[in-house]
Design a protein around this nucleic acid. Sequence first.
DNA 1: ATTACTATTTCCCGAGTAA
DNA 2: TTTACTCGGGAAATAGTAA
Lengths: 243, 243
Amino acid sequence: MQPLSFKERVLIFLAERGGFTNSLKMTTPILSKYLGTSQQSASRLLITLEREGLLERRIVGRTTYVKITPIGVARLRDLYISLKTIFERPVNIVLEGRVFTGLGEGAYYMSQPGYVKQMEEKLGYTPYPGTLNLSLLSRDSIENRLLLQKLAFIEIQGFKDGLRTFGNVKIIPATINENIKGGIIFAERSHYDNSVIELISHVRLRDELNLKDGSLVKVSVEIPSNNFFENFRVKPVIYSPPP
Amino acid sequence: MQPLSFKERVLIFLAERGGFTNSLKMTTPILSKYLGTSQQSASRLLITLEREGLLERRIVGRTTYVKITPIGVARLRDLYISLKTIFERPVNIVLEGRVFTGLGEGAYYMSQPGYVKQMEEKLGYTPYPGTLNLSLLSRDSIENRLLLQKLAFIEIQGFKDGLRTFGNVKIIPATINENIKGGIIFAERSHYDNSVIELISHVRLRDELNLKDGSLVKVSVEIPSNNFFENFRVKPVIYSPPP
DNA sequence: ATTACTATTTCCCGAGTAA
DNA sequence: TTTACTCGGGAAATAGTAA
């Protein structure tokens, strides 16, 4: 697959070389090399783009100069703006799941002073001593859970209390049912699998949101775009060689 | 002209609707409407994009859900980055011209205390009492001159001294022959046409750069990208309707 | 409703080549 | 060397239609 249509690649190629303000010396064999196409197609491209008003050719002696027109600049700019709005707005990640009753481990862990003290410090509130378990519904939710676990930036250190060891825990702030502030808590070694999340809050969520086992709960987490898209680095596609 | 290839437009269409993190309900008639293509082509597009690993389809009951894959996200991100580097670096505008001798008006105006006082204030230096006239060489230079005149942000107010009226003047800082700091000065009502610029500096440029009539001079002005691209607002191309 | 196959048409690409 | 024409083959888009 060509990652882009040839027309845009020509405009980007020229723009990278200052074709917004300068007429650039350009031959069809050179352009065709860069695009990986034939000389004939490069020639046709320039002709078509000129007819469409996106660039302007001027022949001086035996050399051709090419410059992007204001319409061409605007065209590329529109594309840029539409991508910018996509990539620079915060990403809202939503998990949906149903409430279920666990074995009480949540309450046990959330009562350990070794955890609570750190949470008060790092969350700014005293968490209710218990967690709300959600069984995630969709594959999207499960995939997003894994991502959120990576992105959870509030780290609570584990500790020993003589009898037993309490592992590290990570938390990411979240909004529950578009309403209550809280967080998703990820235990380093959880007794649950990837299809489950545990929620914490300053209140008892079951009471506050009137939840019973089986109730549908929506958890949303806002991620700064940078943190999100960082996770999608693949070897880059070269649109045109460096200027 | 399709401003973009269909494939990118599908990815952008989905991305605008949260297709990075959520599986979106999608039918080929709806997609085809947005793309302005046939239902059959929309169908083929989804099939092809899935084969290429850029998106993922899941059929649940009789509805199809579509989600962008990490490879698809990376693809779009690469395009975004290459446009970002184009549109967010400062734009360097270059004018080239040859030195010529004027009728001495430059020196006359640049000796008026009504101008000089303001210039000292706004430029931070005392300009040499004279200007260097350049006759611009290329159409690019002449076009860019017009743009720079619009962008010139240092405004010197005109005044009357009883005998006569001195008009408003605008200046934009520039670098002359990659070396000397100075500015291009635009008189509101110049006795020269668009193919001429007048340069000012804290020194006498003819001496400093060893110039004679006919010498080639290169003047460059760095414009913040925003200020530059603002001038290219045309009615936007709709890549896909707002989410 | 959908999706997507097959057939037809249209359009695009590149070889050959002229200027 | 260039640019860019014509033309033949193939890819891609649409029409028709089945499931």
